[in-house]
Design a protein around this nucleic acid. Sequence first.
DNA 1: ATAGGGTTAG
Length: 525
Amino acid sequence: MDEAFRFFRWAGKQKEYEHKLESYVLLVEVFTVSGGDVERIKRLVREIKEKGLLMNELSANGLIKCFGRLGMVEELLWVWRGMKENGIEPSLFTYNFLLDGLVNSMFVESAERVFEVMQCGKVRPDVVSYNTMIKGYCKTGKLGKAMEKLKEMEVLNVGADKISYMSLIQLCYSDSDINSYLGLFREMEEKGLEIPSHAYSLVISGLCKEGRCSEGYAVFDLMVRKGCKANVAIYTTLIDSFAKSGNIEEGMKLFERMKEEGFEPDEVTYGVIVNSLCKVGKVDNAMEYFEFCRENGFAINAVFYSSLISGLGKVGRVDEAEKLFEEMEVKGCTRDSYCYNALIDAFAKCEKMDEALTLFERMEDEGCDQTVYTYTILISGLFKERKNEEALKLWEMMIDKGITPTPASFRALSTGLCLSGKVARACKILDELAPIGVIPETAFEDMINVLCKAGRFDQACNLADGIVDRGREIPGKVRTVLINALRKVGNADLAMKLMHSKIGIGYDRKGSVKKRVKFRILLDM
DNA sequence: ATAGGGTTAG
């Protein structure tokens, strides 16, 4: 590349020789394929402009291809203008490179205008033009417009191909819009298009992510029947999904099967195996796989450690968990928030809140982000040790730091407060969340459940009445919640009593509101 | 020429 450039400069200095546009274009092409030195290319463009070289068809196409690939929009439009001024008709390739360049630089609206020009002109958009527009809409998250283009292809008899469908499926997949991509996948099948293994991957992963592992497995079967080769990623996602749905045996079967078929499990697969075993308490078994990976040169990442630390913590082996945590530093594996949270949780579970809090501080010192999970673990741990004020302080700290509470974090707080008799305080904090846009949807339900579980039916009724009286929820809904909570703790008598009672806001004949009978009165509390 | 998958939490 440098040699080409030196020769170019040398030739430019020779007498009776002037570079033509073609030479510049060749050099731009060289710079483009060899990594794309945008600054050097821009200098060449300036020289072309200074010399006033005239645009021609071949050069214009070459330049558009390069500028398109590099996303040099300004230069793209400069060539485009030059073509117009010199009466050069763009070819289909020119259009498509231009579209792709604009789309890759997120100038989707400009691409839209070019596309419209094509639709009215001599060179009609082909499948590549359509696919490029679909890609643009997918990049900007405009699923509706992308789907419109697919329909348009059908109407205008531009056959959509696997790439049209793949772009759309990919977008729907990243949006977790499972019904849309299942539909698209079926359409592909119906049209008899070749289904790339990547399509199977997406559909299987998508179904697995939704917890629909049997359906994922069915698609996997279909894939094998159609002669499409599976791969490590597909096996890994299936194993994970089966384990997550509580069927680790099926996961292990798939693990054996993939090895039999000659697929080498990698560190992600082993990460899944270790994590799954830890989750069901088979931490020694998980340790064996961990050792196997270590001995066989697999990249040991933080997933292994966080899974094992949390697994050990679950079965009360907190010393071993701590040892692994410290080992990470020695082995040069960066500790992420998952690892910290797992160990903090292990400490909290065995009532070692001092250690947990020390780790919380260490987390900050070592530059690891404290997350909403961290606070949730600590808050419930502190309440368990009756350190209510400290728990509340942490909640405030979390809000002050701008960390958005989750329903689970509020559950930890409200559970602690309710069980220490501070139901009103929990309600007040809940009210303060609304203005910052946080509405833990199950908050009241969780609180009523907690109170019933503790046998404090009177307080549960009071809370239920308070919710209705303040107009926070409709009486029928609160009643259902209360009935379910009573049933859950086995108090069928009260549940029945509530079920057979008329409740809610009655209306008299004139339409004015009658006074509601309180839950508390209904249940004689 | 245009599309590209899998693992970690209360």
